[in-house]
Design a protein around this nucleic acid. Structure first.
Length: 243
DNA sequence: CCGGTTGTTCAGCG
DNA sequence: GCGCTGAACAACCG
């Protein structure tokens, strides 16, 4: 569930509830959400991996973490963390983090950092990267302040596509390669969205969970590099390390 | 049945 | 105060 494009799919699936009144709110969240009962749902937004349920004055923020899930007009066996009931249906969230945001969203979120957002700004990403020369390329892609919405799958696929080894240092990469990384982070995310919608995401993976490099026909390396220590799949032959 | 993970936060330490 | 590490959370798959 968790990467940015999946939240865009969710946002499309729940459009029917925009403008509708919440007739009942429930769930095992410890966050006090009773105040939203009876309120009109103003909008759904996403920022990276944050799913935002907007009410006139406040916003409920859902983060799916690693195991979070949701159901529309059906339930799972496990108890919902948060449930919203409307006259025209119901929406349930499981195993997710729930928070209430009281501040104006524009003051909380830098929309230009979200790879799925129309306000996405590659120049700003380039500026942020320039200030972090010692950052590894793999860690950079997972940095939500720079590439909000990019998760481990997108990270592995982008680096494989642009032939960059995840431990490469940003400061050692040519400007052209940095720009390629930024461009591909967005391009791949939108392809991820289309493939996921069509239920064909996995079959398009070239690196993530794969054993063999399709370009070199040699085994891929599995390693947990960088500060994020997420599993990285890469080819030592065709993905260049800049160091 | 066990090991592993599309993620983040926080306590503890040096 | 900083960065780093490990734990915690939690559900499902193979």
């Amino acid at each position: 569930m968790p990467e940015g494009p999946s939240l865009v799919i969710l946002k499309e699936e729940v459009k029917r509830f925009i403008g509708k009144k919440v007739t009942r709110i429930a769930g095992n969240t410890k966050i006090p959400v009773a105040e939203f009962e009876g309120q009109k749902l103003a909008d759904f937004k996403t920022w990276g991996k944050h799913f935002l349920i907007c009410f006139p004055k406040k916003t409920i923020r859902i983060h799916f973490l690693l195991f979070g899930s949701y159901r529309i007009n059906e339930t799972k066996i496990t108890p919902p963390r948060l449930s919203l009931f409307f006259k025209n249906g119901e929406l349930h969230f499981y195993a997710c983090s729930v928070q209430i945001i009281e501040a104006d969203l524009d003051s909380v979120y830098d929309w230009s950092a979200d790879v799925m957002n129309e306000a996405w700004d590659p120049k700003k990403a380039a500026e942020k990267l320039k200030a972090m020369p010692k950052l590894q390329a793999g860690d950079a892609l997972l940095d939500q302040h720079i590439f909000a919405g990019v998760g481990n799958i997108i990270r592995n696929e982008v680096l494989y596509r642009i032939k960059v080894q995840p431990e490469s240092l940003i400061g050692k990469m040519p400007k052209k390669k940095i720009n390629e990384l930024i461009r591909e982070a967005r391009t791949y995310s939108f392809e991820f969205l289309e493939w996921k919608k069509a239920f064909v995401l996995k079959k398009h993976w070239l690196a993530h969970t794969k054993k063999i490099c399709v370009r070199c026909e040699i085994p891929l390396v599995k390693k947990y590099p960088g500060k994020t220590k997420r599993r990285a799949f890469f080819c030592e032959n065709c993905q260049k390390i800049y160091k």
